[in-house]
Each structure stands twice: as C-alpha cells, then as structure tokens.
C-alpha cells in the first residue's frame, strides 16, 4: 500500500496553488506541496527539500539527521560484531598458543 519515493524539490511552479517540481533520478513531475509547508517553512523555502512523494503530493520532509542516525546504528552493529569477532579470534589464537 502507498508507494512513496524520495525526491528533491527543484523549482516552485505555482506559489498560490503550492505546486513545485520534484526530481526523482532525473525524472520530473509537478507535485503539491501543501502537506510540507507551514508558517516556518513557506512554499518559497521548499526548493532543495528532500521529500517523500505519494500520488503527486509531497507528504513528508525527509529528516536527514534521522536517516544518518538509522544508518549509523546499523554500522555500529557491524563494528561491534567485528570487534567481537576479533576478540574471539585472538582468544582462539591465545588458546592455541597456550
């Protein structure tokens, strides 16, 4: 349900109707920005925003910090595993040596 795809707003096409052009990998489409604008973030400020697009509407502004955080958690998982593996390997090596 609800196919959504990240894209970047590259141009405002109609300020009053809150329309802008979104770019998804070089494919462009006019989308409605109503759901991602408010007083602090007016239409004019949307250019450059990364948004999630669903059926021609920008539905959410993508939180870059949160995205990085999610990836970091996964990376750290890997690091911990690598450390554990290294510890195990050295323990084994020690075991063999003794």
């Amino acid at each position: 349900m609800c196919l959504g795809i990240p894209g970047q707003i590259v141009e405002i096409t109609d300020k009053t109707r809150k329309l802008g052009l979104v770019d998804v990998s070089g494919v462009k489409r006019e989308v409605n920005l109503a759901c991602i604008v408010n007083e602090e973030h007016p239409v004019a400020d949307c250019v450059g925003d990364w948004v999630l697009v669903h059926v021609g509407f920008a539905m959410s502004r993508i939180d870059e910090a949160e995205a990085a955080e999610t990836l970091k958690i996964l990376e750290q998982l890997g690091e911990v595993q690598d450390e554990l593996a290294a510890m195990r390997a050295s323990a084994e090596a020690l075991g063999k040596a003794s």
Partner: peptide
C-alpha cells in the same frame, strides 16, 4: 538514488542478519 540506495546495502544487511 539518495535515501534509497543506502537502504539497500547488502553489507549492512549482513550485520542485521547476524543479530
């Protein structure tokens, strides 16, 4: 594709699968 390709990284999947 930003915000797409990073989340299709098979390397990170390996960490998760181990956990």
């Amino acid at each position: 594709m930003k915000y797409v390709d990073e989340f299709r990284d098979p390397e990170k999947a390996k960490f998760l699968l181990r956990e």
